[in-house]
């Protein structure tokens, strides 16, 4: 849902927005604890909704630089950047400036910068929002192709994109958890015979939550 608090939650998980209440644990580590922070951040990466930064940098420079900031040595960061850019099928645009990329390409660079330091936990904030159908399909394919040992937490209000990409779902409504279970369990909440069961189940959950 728009305004449900998805981006805020991901920012809190990424360590970029200190929570006003409660606590965060990433694989048992608290990113807001100075003792855990470095280890927590080394295994976490965040892909923001938009990446309107460093428009004059070239794609490979940008991803390398992010890799270096994530703790890699410079030479390792450069090699890792090449791998990450190849993984998002942008190797032919390595020397393009960030400002010259289309929206879909920028989104893929955002994914590449998140992948560059091989994180164990990947936080993706609406990776397909605003993309045309073709680019959206490309992004979903890229997400499907992510290494199996990478845990992915992604936010989206497009249920179709989640259909094949996730195992577990949390539905947020107005900052509250309306549902938290497996994709199979959510699908079972859909009325029988529905053409798009996940979408129908989602609407059912939200409606029930608001009534409650």
């Amino acid at each position: 849902m728009n305004g449900a608090g998805k981006s805020t939650l991901l920012s809190v998980l990424a360590g970029s927005l200190r929570p006003t209440a409660g606590s965060v644990r990433l694989n048992g580590l608290d990113p807001y604890d100075s003792n855990d922070r470095r280890r927590a951040l080394l295994q976490t990466a965040f892909m923001p909704q938009s990446l309107d930064v460093a428009r004059r940098m070239r794609v490979h420079e940008f991803v390398s630089y992010v890799g270096w900031l994530r703790g890699l040595s410079w030479s390792t960061a450069r090699d890792a950047a090449t791998d990450a850019i190849r993984a998002v099928n942008l190797i032919d645009r390595s020397t393009s400036t960030m400002g010259s990329l289309s929206g879909g390409m920028t989104r893929r660079v955002a994914l590449a910068q998140a992948l560059v330091a091989r994180p164990r936990l990947l936080l993706l904030d609406e990776p397909t929002t605003g993309l045309d159908p073709e680019q959206r399909e490309v992004m979903v394919e890229l997400l499907r192709a992510l290494p199996a040992d990478v845990q992915v937490v992604m936010s989206s209000h497009v249920m179709e994109d989640l259909e094949d990409a996730v195992d577990e779902l949390v539905i947020l409504d107005d900052g509250e958890i309306a549902f938290h279970d497996s994709k199979v369990a959510l699908r079972q909440l859909a009325p029988p015979g529905t053409a798009r069961p996940l979408q129908a189940a989602f609407l059912s959950v939200v409606t029930s939550h608001r009534k409650a």
Partner: peptide, 19 residues
């Protein structure tokens, strides 16, 4: 222009951030 809002979001997860 270089270190805008999106940069703040991703840089927060970087151990070497600050440079």
């Amino acid at each position: 222009t270089t270190l805008g809002r999106a940069w703040r979001q991703i840089s927060a997860t970087m151990p070497r951030a600050g440079a």
